[in-house]
Nucleic acid binder design. Structure first.
Lengths: 227, 227, 227, 227
DNA sequence: AATGAATGAGCGTTCATTCAT
DNA sequence: GATGAATGAACGCTCATTCAT
C-alpha cells in the first residue's frame, strides 16, 4: 500500500515547509502505524493492546488517541490504506497491456509482488475483517468485493475470446485470489526465492488452472516480467 | 472433521454403561465444543469469552473448567480433532487409488469436501494458530507441515512420472492448499453449488495449474467422483 | 427508604433457609449499597470510583459487577429504593388522618423525619438526577413529579375548603418540598435538635406560609406528633 | 451575579487602553467563564472536561490555562463572583429600608430575583461546594455562612420587636434560604410567571411562615415591589 | 457435574495538565 | 494568546480463572 512511501512524503513536506513540532508529530503517527501493523500481524488485533502499540512506537498509549479516535479506527486506516494502494498498483499494472491474458497475468503478478512487499499489511487487511464493527466491515467487504470483481472481469474477458477455459469463473476467481493472497502468509524474504520468482510461478499456476494454451502462457509470462 | 461422529460414539458408550448423570455430562461437553467452534469461527478466539461459550452451551462458564483446564486447551482440542479427522479422510481417499494423478485428485477432492462440511472447524484450525502459546503452536504447525508434505509427495510423484509439470513443487503445493482450504472461508451451503461441485472444479483447477494433459484431467476427475 | 431494614430482612431469610454461600453474597451486596450511598453522598457520583466503592465494601471492584451491571445501575437502585420507601412512608402517614390540613401536616412531618433518618439516600436521590442517562433520568423525574403532585393535591384540598390560602399552589409546593427536603443537607443527628423537633418546626413553618389559622396550626401540629 | 456587567467593564477598559490582542484575550476569558458556567450547571463539575469547556469557548483546552491555573480555580472564580454579587445585591436591597420586616422582605425578594436571573451560577455555587478541596471549600462555606447569618440577623430583628414569631430562628432561616435558593433549580424564564412574580410569592410565603400579621405582610410586599 | 461468588490482571479510553513553539 | 503534542494517572469495565459448596 505504501504507507511507508506516502508517509515519508508527508514527512519530507513537513520538514521542508513546517515548524519543527510538526515533524515530531508526523513521525509519531508513522511510528504508531508501523507498530500497529507489526503487532496486528504477529499477535492479531484483539491480542494487541494499545499499551503494546504505544511501547513499540515509543510513546504512551494515550498519545495514540491524538492520531486516532480509537483502536478500531487505527485498524481501519491501515486496511483502507492497503486496499487503496493495492488496487492502484494492480490496476495500473494490468493497464500496461491490452491482450486479455496479458492483462490478467500482469494483475496476478503485481498482486503477488505487492503482497510480498507488504506482507504484514496484506495479512492484517485480510484476516482482521472480523474485528470490525458491522459498518466498517461492510465498507471493507465492499472494497474487497469490488477488487475481486476486477479479477472476475479479467478472467471473463479471456474466456469470452476463447483464450481461457475455466470450468467456473467465480470458483476460479476465488482460487486465484486465495493462492495469490496467501503468499503474504508464507513468503519469507530471506528464503530461497525472491518475490519476483514467486510471482512468476503464480502467473504460470493461474494461467494453467484456467487452461490457457502453453504457448500463450509462455508469452504472457514473458510479457509481464519487468527487465 | 467428525466431532459429531466421535462424540456420539462416546455418547453411546456412556449411555450403555453409565448412569444418567454421565450422559448429561457428555452432552455438556459436546455443547461446549460446538459453542466454542461457532464462536471462535464467528468472532475469533480472543474476541470470544468463556462466559459467551458457557451461555451458548447453556452452562455457567465455570462448568467449562470441568472439561478443559483452560481456554487454550479447548482450542487445542478442536484443532487437533480437526487435523486428525482431516488427515484420516484425505489419506484414505487417496489410498483408494494407485495412479499418482488419481491419488492427488482424490486428495484434493476430499480436502475440499471436508472443508465444506466442516467449515467452522477448518477455519478455526487455520486462523487461530497464532492464538496458541509456543509449545502447542509448534505442535500444530508440525501436524500441518506433515499434512502439507503429504501433498508435496503426491505432486512430486506425478512430476517424477512426467504426468505433472509444476514450475516449482513447493510453491505449487502452497497454492493448491491455499485455494482448497480457502473454500471454508467463502463456501455457503445455501449457495448455487453443492460442495461436491465446488470440489470438482478444484480438481480441474489444480490439475490444470500443474499442467496435466487434458485427457488425464478428465479421467482423474471422473475416477474420483463418487457414485 | 429502609434499604437497611429491607436488606437485613433478606439477610435473615437467607440465613435461616439458605446455604452459607448465599449469606456472604447478600452481605456483600448490602455492603456495596452502603458504601456507594456513603461515597455518593460525600463525594458525588462522578467523583466516586468503583474501586473506592469496592474498597469501602471490602471487595475488589470487579465483584460489584456481580450485583449490578454498571455504576449507573447501582445509583438507580439506590434512588428507586429511596423513592419507593419515601412515598410509602409519607402516604401512609397522611392516610392516618382525614382532615385535609392534618393530612398535609402529617405528610410534611413524615417527609422531614424520613429525610433526617435517611439523609444520605435522600441527598443522593435528589442531587444525582443529573448523573443519569436520559432514560433513567426521565423515569426518576416522573416518580419525583408524581410525589410532588401528591403535595399539590394536599395543599389544593386545604385551599378548596378555605383552610389554606396560598398565593400560588405550585410555587407553594416547590417551597414546601425544597425546605423540607433540604433538611437532609444540613441536619446533624448530633446537633442540638432531634429530627422530630426539626419536623415539628417545619409543620409550623409550612402551615404558616400557607396562612392557616393559628388555632388550626396548633391543632394539626398536636395531632401529628406521635407521643 | 453579574459576570456580564463586570466582564464588559473589563472589556471596555481593555478596548480603550490596550491593543487589539488584549480585547481578544478578554473575550476568550469571558467565553471560558460562560462555557464553564453552562457546562457545570448542566453536567456538573466532575462530568465536565476541560476539553468540553474549550470546545464551547472556541479555544483549545490548553488556552484555559492562560487564564486559570487549573480547573478548580475556574470553579472557585465563578463561585466567588456569584457570592460577591449576590451579597452586594441583597444587602443593598435591604438597605433601602429601615423597618425590620420590610428589610427582610426586600432581602428575600432580591435573593429570589437574583437567583432567577443567574440560575446557572447560583446552582453551580450551591451544588459544587463538594467539588472543592478542603481549603477553598472552607472559604466558600464561610462566605455562605456569613450570608446566612445576615438572614438570621434580619429574622431576629423582626422577632425582637414582636413582628415575627418563628418557632426557631435557625430552622426558619434554613427553610427560608432553601426555598428561595431552590428557585434556581426549577424556575423557567419561559414559564407562566416572571421571576418578579415568583419573588412576590416568596415574600408572602416567608413572612407567613414567620407568622407576621397579614396587614404587615401586605404592607411589606407592597413596599418592596419596584416602581 | 455444576454453580455462585469472588479475584487480580489488564483492557480501551479519558482525564487534567505541561510545555515548546 | 494560543496551540499541538504528549504524559501519567485513573477511569469503568471485562477477562480467565479459582474454589467452596
Amino acid at each position: 500500500m505504501n504507507d511507508a512511501v506516502q508517509a515519508s512524503r508527508q514527512d519530507a513536506a513537513a520538514e521542508s515547509q513546517g515548524p519543527d513540532g510538526n515533524r515530531r508529530g508526523v513521525r509519531t503517527r508513522h511510528a504508531i502505524d508501523r507498530a500497529a501493523t507489526d503487532l496486528f500481524f504477529r499477535l492479531g488485533y484483539h491480542a494487541t493492546s494499545m499499551r503494546a502499540i504505544g511501547d513499540a512506537a515509543q510513546v504512551r498509549s494515550a498519545a495514540i488517541y491524538h492520531w486516532y479516535p480509537n483502536k478500531e479506527a487505527l485498524l481501519i486506516h491501515l486496511q483502507n490504506e492497503f486496499m487503496r494502494e493495492l488496487t492502484k498498483a494492480v490496476e495500473s499494472a494490468a493497464d500496461r497491456h491490452t491482450h486479455p491474458v496479458f492483462r490478467l497475468a500482469a494483475a496476478v503478478r503485481e498482486h503477488v509482488v505487492f503482497h510480498g512487499l507488504h506482507q504484514q499489511e496484506a495479512f492484517v487487511t485480510d484476516s482482521e475483517i472480523r474485528a470490525l464493527a458491522p459498518g466498517p466491515r461492510d465498507a471493507l467487504v465492499a472494497r474487497r468485493d469490488a477488487y475481486q470483481q476486477y479479477f472476475v472481469n479479467l478472467i471473463s474477458a479471456g474466456r469470452d475470446r476463447g483464450l481461457l477455459r475455466p470450468t467456473d469463473v467465480h470458483v476460479a476467481t476465488y482460487a486465484v485470489l486465495l493462492q495469490c493472497t496467501g503468499v503474504s502468509a508464507w513468503f519469507k524474504a530471506s528464503g530461497r526465492m525472491t518475490i519476483a520468482e514467486v510471482a512468476d510461478h503464480h502467473v504460470d499456476l493461474v494461467l494453467g488452472s484456467l487452461h490457457a494454451d502453453r504457448g500463450l502462457i509462455g508469452a504472457a509470462a514473458a510479457a509481464v516480467r519487468p527487465d
